[in-house]
C-alpha cells in the first residue's frame, strides 16, 4: 500500500466519520464543528485527485465562508444556556433502511457501470489555467449568470434577515 493509498483512506475516514457526527450528534455545536472536518477531508480528497484549484476554493468558500455563516446561524438561533441545543431524532429505523438503499443503489450503479477511464495515472499538471480559460470561453454565460445569482442572493439575504424598520421604531431611533 503506497503513501497515496494511505492518504486516500485517511481522508476518506475523516470525511465519513465526521459526516456521521454531523448527522447524528445531539449537540448542534458539535455538528457544526464536525462539518469543518468533513470539508477539510473533502478538500484533501480534491488535492489527491490533482484538482488543486478546487481544493483551495473548497477551503476558501466552504470553510472560510459557508461554515462561518452556519456558525453565526447556530449562535444566533440557539439559547446557549438552555437544553434547546439538544435536538431530537425520529424515524431511526426507516432512515437506516433508506440509508442502506440509497448508498447501496448508488454504489452498486457506480461499481457495475463500466466507466471509460483513461489509462495511466491522473494528470498532475496544475488546473487553474485550464479552468480560467474554460470560464472565459465555453462557460462564459453560466459564469456571468452565477455572478448575478450571487448578487441577488446577497441583496435578498440582507432584505430577509434585517429587522423590519416600521415595526420597531424605537430601535430604529436609537440607531
Amino acid at each position: 500500500m503506497s503513501l497515496f493509498d494511505i492518504a486516500f483512506y485517511f481522508f476518506a475516514l475523516i470525511t465519513v466519520a465526521s459526516a456521521a457526527l454531523v448527522v447524528f450528534s445531539r449537540n448542534i455545536i458539535y455538528s457544526a464543528f464536525a462539518l469543518l472536518f468533513t470539508f477539510f477531508g473533502v478538500a484533501g480528497l480534491y488535492a489527491l485527485l490533482g484538482a488543486d484549484f478546487v481544493a483551495v476554493a473548497q477551503l476558501l468558500i466552504y470553510v472560510g465562508g459557508i461554515l462561518v455563516l452556519l456558525l453565526f446561524g447556530v449562535m444566533l438561533t440557539t439559547k446557549l444556556v438552555s437544553v434547546d441545543m439538544k435536538t431530537g431524532t425520529l424515524q431511526a429505523l426507516p432512515a437506516t433502511l433508506l440509508f442502506a438503499a440509497v448508498a447501496g443503489a448508488l454504489s452498486g450503479v457506480y461499481i457495475i457501470t463500466d466507466w471509460n477511464v483513461l489509462a495511466g495515472a491522473p494528470d498532475a499538471a496544475t488546473t487553474a489555467v485550464t479552468i480560467g480559460d474554460m470560464f472565459l470561453t465555453t462557460w462564459l454565460l453560466p459564469f456571468e449568470i452565477a455572478s448575478v445569482v450571487l448578487l441577488v442572493a446577497l441583496v435578498g439575504a440582507a432584505m430577509i434577515a434585517r429587522r423590519d424598520a416600521r415595526s420597531k421604531p424605537t430601535q430604529q431611533a436609537a440607531l
Partner: peptide, 30 residues
C-alpha cells in the same frame, strides 16, 4: 464514487431524521 455515495446517503439521512432546521441545512451541504 462509493465514498461520494456514502456521503450523499449520510446527508439524506440527516435531512430525513433531524428536526432542527440548521442540521437539515448542514446535511444539504453534505
Amino acid at each position: 464514487l462509493s465514498l461520494s455515495a456514502v456521503l450523499f446517503a449520510t446527508g439524506v439521512i440527516g435531512v430525513l431524521t433531524r428536526r432542527n432546521a440548521i442540521i437539515v441545512f448542514m446535511s444539504i451541504e453534505l
